[in-house]
């Protein structure tokens, strides 16, 4: 059986939270609780003194990788609506081929 994964090309994540609200809309989740994904903000001051802001969507235990949508041939709600198009869902072996060459990225897996 294939392992499914989410490729997060987070260099371009702008922290807009479309993923969070897309998930809440899809599953009618309440406000005030985490949905399937939450975006974390980091403000780094790098060794050269440059400020660098990074956002990383993190997937919670509530995330089901949109099994129902995927079964119907649709992308997960967060992937579909991501304003920066940084999320790709698929089989782990396929996504490993799609890793960006020149920047850091995250592969989030689920068996």
């Amino acid at each position: 059986m294939s392992t499914y994964a989410m490729l997060i090309d987070y260099e371009y994540c702008t922290g807009c939270k479309s993923c969070e609200v897309a998930c809440k809309q899809e599953y009618h989740r309440p406000a005030g609780r985490a949905g399937g994904v939450e975006v974390q903000e980091f403000i780094h001051r790098l060794p050269n003194d440059q400020l660098f802001i990074t956002y990383i969507p993190t997937f919670t235990r509530a995330c089901v990788f949109c099994a129902g949508r995927v079964k119907q041939g649709m992308a997960p709600a967060c992937v579909k609506h991501c304003m920066a198009n940084i999320l790709t869902f698929g089989k782990l072996e396929d996504l490993q081929q799609q890793l960006p060459e020149k920047r850091k990225a995250i592969l989030w897996t689920k068996g």
């Binding site: 807009c16 939270k17 479309s18 897309a22 809309q25 899809e26 579909k80 609506h81 991501c82 304003m83």
Partner: peptide, 20 residues
């Protein structure tokens, strides 16, 4: 439910949290 229209050239399927 409101989703982004993938065939629209403006947002190409994406949608912001306010519209969602």
């Amino acid at each position: 439910k409101v989703e982004g229209d993938p065939d629209h050239p403006w947002n190409q399927g994406r949608l912001c949290s306010r519209c969602l």
